[in-house]
Computed example of a mutant assay.
Amino acid sequence: MDNVVGELGWGRTKLIRIESAKVRLSAADLRKLGKLYGADANDLARLHELMDAAGSTPWFAAYTDLLTAALMEYIELEAMAAQIHMANTGVLPGLLQSRSYATAVYESQPHIPDPDQAARLVEVRMKRQRVITEDGVPLRAIIGQALLHVATGGRDVLKEQLGLLAEMSELANVELRVVPFSAERAILTSGISVFDFDAEPGGDQEPSVAFTEHEGSMLLRDAELDVRRFRRLLDHLATQSLDPDESRHMITKRMEEL
C-alpha cells in the first residue's frame, strides 16, 4: 500500500476506498495503476471493459483531464459524504458560490487558466453543489465577515452572491454562520473541510477525513488525530460566529447596502 501511495501521490484513504469498492476507479487512475504494476495494453483494455460493466461512471470522471489528483479526490469524497463541515475566511466555499462569483475567483488567481478551462472549472463547481441542493447533505459552513465586503468580480457580482448565500442559508440542511469583525478568538489561516460518512450496513463506521486548502494546494488529512484537531477548530470557530439567523440578517443587510 505505501508503495502505491508514494508512487501515485494518493492519500491512503483513497486507496483504501478503492480497494473496498467505496470509490469508483476512474479511467485515468486505472491507467496509473496499470503502469505501476506493468499491465500491458490487453490487460488494461479488459480491465476497462470490466469497469464499464460494473456501472455508470460518476459525473466528475469527465473532468479527469482538468482536475488535479487532490481536487479529484476531494470531489469524490465530497460526493460520498453524509455530512460536511467547513470554514474559510479567504474565499467563499465552492459549495456556496454563484456562477459569476466562481468565474471571478478563477479570473483573480495568480495562474489564470485559459477561458475554456476556466469555464469547465466553473461548471465543475456548479455541479458539486448538487450534494447540497439536490441530495440534501447537511452542511455547516463558517465564513468571515470580510467576505461580505470584498467585491470579487465587482459590486453586481457580490450582490448576486450575497443573495445566493441568503437563499442557501434558508435550506433546512444548511447551517451558515458568519464570524464577525468583533470576534476576539477566531484565527483561520487556511480553508478547512471535514467530511463524515455513513457506516455500511452491518459494518464499521467509515473514518472521517479532513482537507486543508492553501494558495494553490490542497492536502488530505486522514489521521484520526488530525481530523479530531480540525473538528475541534471548526467547533471553536462556531462559538466565535453569529448564529444562523444573525448571520442571515447580516448577509441581507449587507446586500441591501450595495
Rank of each mutant, 00 (worst) to 15 (best):
V124C: 09
R125D: 08
R125L: 06
R125H: 08
R125S: 05
R128S: 10
Q129P: 02
V131Q: 00
V131Y: 07
T133K: 08
E134P: 05
V137F: 07
P138R: 09
L139N: 02
I142Q: 00
I142T: 03
I142V: 10
G144M: 02
A146W: 04
A146I: 08
L148E: 02
H149R: 15
V150H: 15
V150T: 13
T152L: 15
G153H: 08
G154H: 04
R155Q: 15
V157W: 07
L158D: 07
L158S: 09
K159V: 08
E160W: 01
Q161H: 08
Q161K: 05
G163S: 05
L164H: 07
L165G: 02
E167L: 06
E167H: 12
S169A: 15
S169N: 12
S169H: 06
E170K: 15
L171D: 03
L171Q: 13
L171E: 04
N173C: 11
N173F: 03
V174D: 01
V174A: 06
E175F: 07
L176E: 04
R177V: 02
R177H: 14
V178D: 00
V179T: 08
P180L: 10
P180G: 10
P180F: 09
F181L: 01
F181M: 03
S182G: 09
A183W: 05
A183V: 07
R185E: 03
A186V: 04
A186G: 07
A186L: 09
I187V: 15
L188A: 01
L188F: 11
L188R: 03
S190H: 15
S190C: 14
I192S: 02
S193D: 12
V194S: 06
F195P: 00
F195W: 10
F195C: 06
D198V: 05
A199S: 10
A199E: 08
E200S: 13
E200F: 11
P201S: 10
G202K: 05
D204T: 10
D204F: 11
P207M: 04
P207F: 11
P207G: 10
S208L: 02
S208D: 08
V209Y: 09
A210Q: 06
A210P: 00
F211P: 01
F211A: 04
T212Y: 13
E213Q: 14
E213S: 11
E213K: 11
H214P: 03
E215D: 14
G216R: 02
G216Q: 03
S217M: 13
S217D: 12
M218E: 09
L219Y: 12
L220K: 03
L220H: 11
R221F: 15
A223L: 13
A223G: 14
A223K: 14
